[in-house]
Design a binder for these strands. Structure first.
Lengths: 116, 116
DNA sequence: CAATCGCTATGACAAATAATCATAACGCTG
DNA sequence: CAGCGTTATGATTATTTGTCATAGCGATTG
C-alpha cells in the first residue's frame, strides 16, 4: 500500500552523471549490442537513448559506448571497459542502498502495524 | 568533485505521498505559521506550495495543514498532529538513509583514491 | 463599524523540459 | 550495387512545471 522508493545518482558539477535509470540504459546497450535495441528494450526512443548516453560521456569526460555505423546489421554499439566498470560498481552501490532502505523502513514504519 | 545524491519518497498507489522536499515544505509551514511564508522561505511561489500540500492531503487521505483565512494577519496555517508525526518519522528515515549512502559510497568509490 | 491588511484559494497563462518525428550518412551483405 | 538496419542530428511537438493575476475572507484597528 505505502512503500518507500528512491533514486540514486552521482553528481558531477551539479549535473547527473550516472543514475539508476542511466546505468540500466548502459546495461541494455551492453546486452543487446546496439543503442537502438537498448532503446526498444527500455521502451524509449532511439533519440532519447542516444542523447542520454552522449550527456553521460560529456559529463564524465570519458567514452562509454563504442559505436559503429554501417556494416553487418547496419552497425552497433558496445560498452567500453570504463563503462563496464562504472556499471558494475554503481549496481553494487544501488543494491546495497536498496537493502538499507528496506531495512530502515521496516524498523521505522512497519513497527506501527505490529503494534495494533 | 563527484558525489552521491539521492531522493527518497513514500509512494501510495504509484504516486508520491511524502518526499524529502515535501517534508521540508511541511516543516516550513510549521515553523512560519503560514503557507505563504513557507513558500518564501523555500524560494517558491505560494501557488506551488499550496498545490503540493493539497496533493499530499488527497494522496494520503488525511488533513495535514489546518488553514485559516481572514483575521489578524490575514490568516495562517498550522500543521495537524498527523502531519507532525509524519514529518518526524520521515526526517528520521531520510537522515538514516543519508548516513548509509555516505558510508557505502566511501567504501565502494573512495577506496579507489586511497589506492594510488 | 467600515476600512484595511495579509493570507488562502484557484483559474489562466507562460516557460522550460522532455519526447517524438523526420532525414542523412554509413558500410557490410547477398 | 541496391538494400537493410544502424548511428547521428536538426526540427518539431507534447507534456510537465512554474508563474501571474485576481477574488474572497474576517479579526483588527482607528
Amino acid at each position: 500500500m505505502m512503500k518507500p522508493q528512491f533514486n540514486l545518482w552521482l553528481e558531477i558539477n551539479g549535473e547527473v552523471g550516472l543514475s539508476i535509470w542511466r546505468v540500466r540504459l548502459l546495461q541494455a546497450v551492453g546486452e543487446t549490442g546496439s543503442i537502438s535495441a537498448a532503446a526498444a528494450q527500455l521502451g524509449i526512443h532511439y533519440r532519447t537513448a542516444w542523447q542520454k548516453i552522449h550527456e553521460m560521456e560529456t559529463r564524465l569526460g570519458q567514452k562509454l559506448v563504442e559505436t559503429q555505423t554501417g556494416g553487418h546489421g547496419g552497425g552497433g554499439a558496445t560498452l567500453t571497459p570504463t563503462a563496464q566498470a562504472y556499471l558494475d560498481k554503481f549496481n553494487q552501490f544501488s543494491q546495497q542502498i536498496e537493502g538499507e532502505i528496506h531495512r530502515h523502513y521496516q524498523a521505522l514504519f512497519d513497527f506501527d502495524d505490529s503494534q495494533r
